[in-house]
């Protein structure tokens, strides 16, 4: 992969929600999906072979401890290329940073089987496409006063609200606002979500990234975005009165 630093953002994001992951490798690319230990969030990723500068693979399941993977990826420097290489004999995944020389980390494989967890195919009445930075900042604002946030769609507006014991926060995005790329409102809806989870889900998002949010009424939220050619999908169960 061209940039190890970019891929680090992906590993940073999934490792806040998951402890371990089983990468399903095939000729088409790499995919994986898993629920967090408390079964509140689901993380799914898909890396098409095209996202790699070079990709040679046949079918394998590669179980990895994400804490170790994150530690290694944190050592990536800008301009490092990333090479992921399976050593079947030693049962290790080699993570190689290539730049002025080569640095190789060998991670022990975990005996995990590919998860049967799939993102369910649900129709959502509302879709918000928003600049990642604007959404992330609004979550940080909401975090000042509460540990959960209410996401609402009404009258062609997307609202992010937090109610503390004494203090409140509200962000409002209209269709014409610069932060909004697209707003499809089918029906008024509102759902409440834990802020720690939501902030973990957007951890790797930086300015220029666009997030797609699917929202229903007291329904799990679905979120999609791409980082470094990696397609990420998240589901988050709501808080319910």
């Amino acid at each position: 992969m061209e940039s190890a630093k970019d891929f680090k953002k992906v590993v940073d994001t999934i490792s806040t929600l998951l402890d371990e992951i089983c990468f399903e490798v095939s000729e088409e690319g790499i995919k994986a999906s898993a629920m967090d230990p408390s079964h509140v969030a689901l993380v799914s990723l898909e890396i098409p072979s095209l996202a790699f500068e070079e990709f040679t693979a046949d079918e394998h399941e590669i179980g990895i401890d994400l804490e170790a993977f994150k530690k290694v990826m944190n050592r990536a420097k800008s301009k490092d290329k990333l090479i992921l290489e399976l050593d079947e004999e030693k049962n290790k995944l080699n993570i190689i940073f290539e730049n002025t020389g080569k640095r190789k980390f060998s991670l022990a494989l975990l005996d995990l089987s590919a998860s049967s967890v799939k993102v369910p195919d649900i129709e959502y009445p509302n879709v918000v496409v928003i600049k990642g930075e604007a959404f992330k900042e609004a979550l940080k604002d909401a975090d000042l006063f509460s540990d959960y946030v209410i996401l609402k769609v009404e009258n062609d507006k997307f609202l992010i609200q937090a109610k503390g014991d004494l203090n409140d926060f509200s962000a409002e995005f209209e269709k014409d606002d610069a932060a909004i790329v697209n707003l499809e409102v089918g029906e008024e809806a509102k759902s409440a979500f834990n802020l720690d989870y939501l902030m973990d889900m957007v951890k790797g998002v930086s300015s220029g990234d666009i997030i797609k949010i699917y929202l229903g009424n007291d329904m799990p939220l679905k979120m999609e975005y791409s980082l470094a050619g990696v397609n990420l999908t998240f589901l988050l169960a709501p808080r319910i009165e």
Binding site: M35, S38, H39, S115, P120, I122, P220, A237, I240, E241
Partner: peptide, 14 residues
């Protein structure tokens, strides 16, 4: 106050 529910409360999952 609201209560956190699980994804399995909505879908057959996992």
């Amino acid at each position: 106050k609201s209560k956190q529910v699980k994804l399995s409360d909505f879908f057959k999952i996992g």
